[in-house]
């Protein structure tokens, strides 16, 4: 366990060091990818319990707006404070919505969670104070008095994303090996038996929902700080759909799946944009089909096949 933790931290430090040598566009792309990876890690917890949320955009967007609004309103640009606020607000909302949602399964869970994110979308589009559908700009972040300027601006957000990823990654990796983590798969397989064993299915799902909301809020907050601009599109169903897309692409068998999925997705999309500006959607669609057909457990299963000596 400790060994793994050290390794995750090591990988984080390597990523940070690599960030110093990367071209700016890649730093930015990876920041966004890591932020999405955080959201998808939360989604992974739910998906392992058999619940697919088509509404994680709700917390992704809410987290981003918390950072943006609080930054303006409290006139603080302290990144850590803002991100903490984003998480707290998201968890608070999830604590209410979760009570209702954890009664639902399958497609109804998916659609109901989507309905909530679409309602947030509608509210934001209606609020001209926050720039309606155009959104508004977020001030650049600070960290304990360090005001990054020019070139180092994107690096701060990148650093935050890597640190968050390492922290959440360690947590998720451990969580998946804890009784609570395994309970997710038990719920997916057979809820009634889980209840017979004395565990509360509702509580298991509720906890996972809160965790997923916290991670999505964190991801959204980091996106806001990195991109410097937020808009209601973050709560639109296509954004939530993208998270599910990434989860299936990376695979939900391991905490690293979402991260790899997110990086791959972003790279694939940006190169599809470049190579074929007129038909990039087709490239994405074909890539997704190929992965589903040949790598049903996501891209991560490739890594597992190699490390566990299974034939390719």
């Amino acid at each position: 366990m400790k060994y793994a933790t050290t390794m995750i931290v090591g990988a984080g430090i390597a990523l940070l060091a690599a960030g110093l040598f990367m071209p700016g566009w890649l730093t930015f792309l990876l920041t966004l990818a890591f932020a999405k990876g955080l959201v998808v890690m939360g989604l992974l917890l739910l998906m392992r319990a058999g619940l697919v949320s088509f509404g994680q955009g709700l917390y992704y967007c809410l987290g981003a707006y918390c950072v943006g609004i609080a930054g303006d309103y409290f006139e603080t640009q302290n990144a850590l404070l803002l991100l903490l606020l984003a998480i707290v607000v998201c968890v608070a909302l999830a604590a209410v919505i979760g009570l209702l949602l954890c009664r639902y399964r399958d497609i109804f869970f998916a659609m109901f969670s989507m309905a909530f994110s679409m309602i947030l979308y509608g509210v934001l589009v209606k609020s001209s104070a926050f720039g309606s559908s155009d959104g508004f700009n977020v001030k650049p972040p600070l960290l304990f008095g360090w005001t990054p300027t020019g070139e180092s601006g994107p690096f701060l957000a990148y650093g935050l994303a890597v640190v968050a990823l390492v922290g959440v990654g360690i947590f998720v990796w451990r969580y998946l090996r804890s009784p609570m983590g395994y309970a997710g798969e038990a719920v997916r397989e057979n809820e009634i038996r889980v209840e017979y064993l004395g565990a509360s299915v509702r509580r298991i799902i509720y906890t996972k929902y809160l965790l997923a909301a916290a991670m999505a809020g964190l991801g959204g907050g980091i996106t806001a700080l990195a991109a410097g601009h937020i808009d209601p599109e973050m709560a639109y169903w296509t954004t939530s759909g993208e998270f599910v897309f990434i989860a299936l692409m990376g695979g939900v068998g391991h905490a690293a799946g979402p991260v790899i999925g997110a990086v791959l997705f972003e790279l694939l999309r940006t190169y599809a944009f470049q190579i074929s500006p007129y038909t990039w959607q087709m490239i994405l669609g074909i890539a997704l089909l190929v992965i589903i057909l040949y790598l049903p457990k996501g891209v991560w299963s490739l890594v597992e096949r190699v490390t566990k000596g299974k034939p390719l």
Binding site: M47, V52, A110, G241, V244, F245, L248, Y278, T279, W280, Q281, M282, L284, G285, I286, L288, L289, I292, P296
Partner: peptide, 16 residues
Amino acid sequence: VVMILVTYAILLILED
């Protein structure tokens, strides 16, 4: 869920 994503991929392809 996988089937939803499969049909989503088809949607993307057909759109183009």
